[in-house]
Write a protein that binds this DNA or RNA. Structure first.
Lengths: 122, 122
DNA sequence: TGCGTACTTGCGTCATAATGCAAGTATACG
DNA sequence: CGTATACTTGCATTATGACGCAAGTACGCA
């Protein structure tokens, strides 16, 4: 019996070697961007606002310094979940709704497809 | 016109005051658990393995000390995404697939329902 | 061209967190 | 009982990150 083991018999080390959809989806950088309460609060405001918002506007949601808000928004943009729009001396950020939805759905699907119970159903 | 503003006219501060499904879903603690590369690697192994794994087994996936792995797994368990099973002197962890799928799907749905384009369609 | 507005960046401080080693605990086994 | 196994915990070290203040930049406007 030299064939591929059933997944339930694999060691975690063996499992780590086999490539699955989940491998490219669990990005620590993305999760890190959402791991700070202040940042999540700002992000939540933007999501619910539903339009591009000025840095100064967003800063009103929180009691932290404007410079802190500026850096948080930059970080969320670098994480790929906010889009920045610079016009003259103003800077606006808006949520990349499509990217976010697709990302979270893909993660959910990938996890589901790795679930042993789901394998039975398939 | 003292009625509720259309969402596209809200300031982020006003938006922060109105309660949406997304409010209780973006949990910084959850994301923090997935914000460390080593932890994500261990978590990925468990997801792909599809069964309960011993701490020692999981440690083979990574080049870090066993004590570090032990602590990472404890943290993921406290975040609610791993389940711990203690039997005799062994300790196993397994992924809470259902919880994870539902969580990520809920986030995706909540974000989608806050998307202005989605509002048009509704 | 001088001033105000709207951010951004440099820097120091404080807090949190990742890691390894060594020691400790708890259970199984002979 | 004594010893090996399977972790867990204490502790020191080092790294990362959040924050505020102050200074800097970039643009618009009179």
């Amino acid at each position: 019996m030299t064939q591929v083991r059933k997944r339930s018999q694999m060691t975690p080390k063996q499992a780590s070697a086999c490539c699955r959809p989940i491998d490219n989806l669990l990005d620590p950088e993305l999760f890190r961007a959402l791991s700070d309460p202040t940042r999540v609060r700002l992000f939540g405001c933007l999501i619910k606002c539903g339009r591009a918002c000025l840095v100064g506007e967003v800063a009103e949601c929180c009691s932290v310094d404007l410079s802190v808000v500026s850096r948080h928004l930059q970080l969320l943009e670098r994480a790929g979940i906010l889009e920045v729009v610079k016009e003259g001396r103003t800077v606006s950020y808006c949520v990349k709704y499509g990217v976010l939805c697709e990302m979270f759905r893909s993660i959910a699907n990938a996890i589901e497809s790795s679930c042993p119970v789901h394998q039975h159903a398939a």
